[in-house]
Simulated scan of single mutants.
Amino acid sequence: MANDDLEARDNDKDKDKLPLTPEGMAAEWATMSDIAADDGGEQEANIDRLMNQEEIDTMLGFSIGDDGKGGRNGIQAIVDSGSVTYERLPMLEIIFERLVRLLSTSLRNLFSDNVEVTLEGIRSVRFGDYINSISLPAMLAVFKAEEWDNFGLVTIESALTYSVLDTMLGGKRGQAAARVDGRPFTSIEMSLLRRVIGVVLGDAEAAFRPLSPVNFRVDRIESNPRFVSISRPANAAIRVELRFDMEGRGGSLHLLLPYATIEPIRELLLESFMGEKLGRDPIWENHLATEVWQADVAVKCVLHECTMPLKRVMKLEIGDTLMFDARPDSVASLRCGDFIVSEGRIGRVDDKIAVQVVSPLRRSKTTMAAFDTSHLNPAS
């Protein structure tokens, strides 16, 4: 049996080595063409599955979303998911646009050269993320808002730092400022940069003055971001980026205001225009004040009052006398409804009994806020 199997295998091998007939060769070529067509279809399918450049940019988040608001998508949206989003403050944008106009004039007078100042953007960031993103060397100034009782931060990037120093020390126009790394700023450079920071903060005071007068005082100047911790790393802050261009030189300046700093004027920053009063009509307020001023009220003069048991009151009969513990010089209370408004002494003017007011009017302890609350929540 074993020999028969070996012979059968040898016969099969010999058949494979025999020359093919024309019909067999045609069948083999058809089979090979079908295989090649299948491979080509798979390659075309693989080519169709390849992404173009627009799809790659969308996946990575380099393209702007379709909503037209600059929203990110793809991987960039995942990276930016930890960013801070807070309510929009319309008045803050108006203030910093005014700051740009003021700085254009002030810096032109300081540098004796044409300086273009542009507002690059206003966005909300976390304080810790912003500190970690500062590239060294940089100049950082911590200032205090006296009226708001909190701090802010001014950051001058390295490109603007060397451009300002080169301009103020007489560098040539049209050339980029030489960057010198590996050494700290000298006293002269610190004094010049402090002067520029003073101009920026002075114009910021003028920009905020129509909304809320404030005084920005430079507390200290640092070159290491670790020494300017004015807020917790997770706290939110507003970063304002200003771009300075001076004849081919320039850089960016950042003004950082923690939300805790601007909290005292938050209601003012929510206004869409200066002096906005939502939900109030000044004409109606003036009319109401006039009518209240002209209204007549009844005032009662209570000479004396005492408290006695109900049992005694029930036993009173006609002709009984009640003794009051009051003297001629005792004061009487003047009442309007259930409220005591003042006190006075009883006297006589001609043939009429008069009351002389001896104490100032007592104002109501109920404020407008408490009055509104009591009407909004009658159950309480």
Results as ranks from 00 to 15, higher is better:
Leu119Cys: 04
Leu119Lys: 09
Glu120Thr: 12
Glu120Gly: 10
Ile122Lys: 06
Ile122Gly: 00
Ser124Glu: 13
Ile131Ser: 08
Ile131Ala: 09
Ile131Glu: 12
Ser133Tyr: 07
Ile134Tyr: 09
Leu140Asp: 06
Phe143Cys: 03
Lys144Ser: 10
Glu146Trp: 02
Glu147Ala: 10
Trp148Tyr: 06
Asn150Lys: 14
Phe151Lys: 14
Ile156Phe: 00
Ser158Lys: 03
Tyr162Arg: 02
Ser163Arg: 05
Val164Trp: 00
Val164Glu: 00
Asp166Trp: 00
Thr167Pro: 00
Met168Trp: 10
Leu169Gly: 02
Leu169Asn: 07
Lys172Val: 12
Arg173Tyr: 12
Arg173Phe: 12
Gly174Asp: 09
Gln175Asn: 11
Ala178Leu: 12
Gly182Phe: 02
Arg183Ala: 11
Arg183Gln: 14
Ser187Leu: 13
Arg194Gln: 15
Ile197Cys: 04
Val199Gln: 08
Leu201Phe: 04
Gly202Cys: 04
Asp203Pro: 01
Glu205Cys: 06
Ala206Met: 15
Ala207Thr: 08
Ala207Gln: 08
Arg209Pro: 04
Ser212Arg: 11
Ser212Thr: 10
Pro213Leu: 02
Asn215Ile: 07
Arg217Lys: 15
Arg217Trp: 04
Val218Phe: 03
Asp219Phe: 14
Ile221Leu: 06
Ser223Met: 08
Ser223Glu: 10
Ser223Pro: 02
Asn224Leu: 08
Pro225Lys: 07
Arg226Asn: 09
Phe227Lys: 04
Val228Tyr: 07
Ile230Val: 09
Ser231Thr: 04
Ala234Tyr: 05
Ala234Asp: 11
Ala236Asp: 06
